[in-house]
Simulated scan of single mutants.
Amino acid sequence: MGDAPGKASGRLRLAVIGTGLGSGPHFKSLHDLASEAEVAWVHARDATRLATAQLPHGAHKTTRLENILEDASVQAVLVLTPPNTHLPLVQRLARAGKHVLVEKPLEIDLARAQSLVQVCDSQGVMLAVMLQHRLRPAATRLRALLKTGELGQLVSASASVRWWRTQSYYDEPGRGTLARDGGGVLITQAIHTLDLLLSYTGLPTRVMGLANTSPVHTMEAEDCACALLHYANGAMATLQATTAAYPGFPERLELNGTLGSASLEAGVLQVAFMNGQTLSVGSQQDSGGGTDPMAFDHAAHRAVLQDFLDAVRQGREPAVTGRSALAAQQVIEAIMASSRSGCPVTL
């Protein structure tokens, strides 16, 4: 973010753009936070979908984006539309002085994602991203352990996302395409766990990857991917990602250090220290890894939205900034480039 956003106080006025599949947990979170945020407008291009959407009390429906852009009382906007629409929307919102929380991924490729971040920087508005795994209680506790050095130096890590999606999921227009989504399992599903891993380890120096479309699905983009990440200190990490693992399993992240090891699975942190102590934090959570992609609790969404509202009020950066979200897209592009060339990619 460039210049610090102006401080705001009281109940914030927001707008929401998009009422598709992924909007549900956002609207549930806004309902929970109704005492802190008022939804002034909900925009969608499809008037029929907009007419049937269950919207917050008092929100005005509109198919005209200018209603949001021209409303000076609207301080921030949630962008919940397909990835390939994010850049043009955020460009207009940023130039109108609106702070933005965008659904993941930032955009369909790294160049467009960087442009999105840059326009918010140049206009001095806040950009947050819904990468909610970072604010789960177990994930924040692990971050604290790493910050204090209690696990020692990173030796190795692994991230596994073995999810299931039916063919009917990919039969929806645009889903799993390069033009609308930017890819398949990496950028749409595994990006959450990959982003969390990178928030702990930082960027690797080299990436080797393989990706393909399995016989399970008929789709343009990949539904299976594996990668090896090399770090400057000699540490290595592996990534496995698929939506062809029936019936779907909890995502898992492991970090092995010189003083102990930690694992995160389905919202639960387990730590074993070399001094004999152990630690367990969190509770079992569904993540939408099976047939129903929306079968998960919205508490982590609410945490990201709560932080975003607080950041707008306090004039500070949000916990999940747009710039920090670029790392996952950089690694995803490296995995796909390595898969195409058969060679490692240096970052």
Rank of each mutant, 00 (worst) to 15 (best):
R316I: 10
V79P: 01
L197S: 09
V100L: 11
R323D: 12
Q330I: 04
A159E: 01
E150C: 08
E333R: 07
L255N: 01
G248E: 08
V119M: 05
P344A: 04
R112M: 11
R175S: 08
M126F: 13
Y170M: 04
R313S: 02
H60L: 15
D32K: 12
L253D: 01
Q123W: 08
A245S: 15
G2S: 15
A334F: 07
R45T: 09
H43V: 11
L279H: 07
G149A: 02
C226H: 09
S263G: 13
E220L: 06
M336P: 00
T205G: 04
D297W: 05
S283G: 02
C224W: 11
V129K: 09
G267W: 07
A139Y: 02
A221E: 04
G342Y: 10
D286H: 15
M126I: 11
G267P: 01
A51Q: 12
L78D: 10
P173C: 11
W163T: 13
M294P: 00
L135H: 03
C343M: 11
M219D: 01
Q277R: 13
S156W: 08
Q270R: 15
V16Q: 06
A128Y: 04
A225F: 11
K61A: 12
H26Y: 15
S158E: 11
N212S: 13
V345A: 01
S341H: 09
G18V: 14
P88A: 06
C120K: 00
S23M: 09
T346F: 03
Q306H: 07
L253P: 00
H26L: 13
R49D: 14
A334R: 00
M208N: 09
T148A: 10
A159H: 02
A266Y: 05
G20R: 02
H301C: 12
S341W: 08
D171W: 12
L55M: 07
F273G: 00
L89K: 03
F296Q: 03
S35P: 04
V312Y: 01
Q132R: 15
T148S: 15
A244F: 13
L305E: 01
V125N: 03
L196R: 05
A327Y: 07
G267H: 06
D286Q: 15
H301A: 04
H86P: 10
T243H: 02
L186G: 03
G276I: 05
A128W: 03
A244D: 12
W41P: 09
Q167H: 06
R95Y: 03
Q285S: 12
S263F: 11
A37W: 13
E66T: 07
Y200D: 02
R206L: 07
E66W: 06
I17W: 07
A241P: 02
A262S: 10
L80N: 04
V268E: 07
Q75P: 00
S263L: 14
I17H: 02
C226W: 12
V312E: 00
G182C: 01
A51G: 12
S263V: 14
R141Y: 10
L228H: 10
R92E: 13
P204W: 05
K7I: 15
E172Y: 09
L255C: 08
S199V: 00
Y170V: 06
V207E: 02
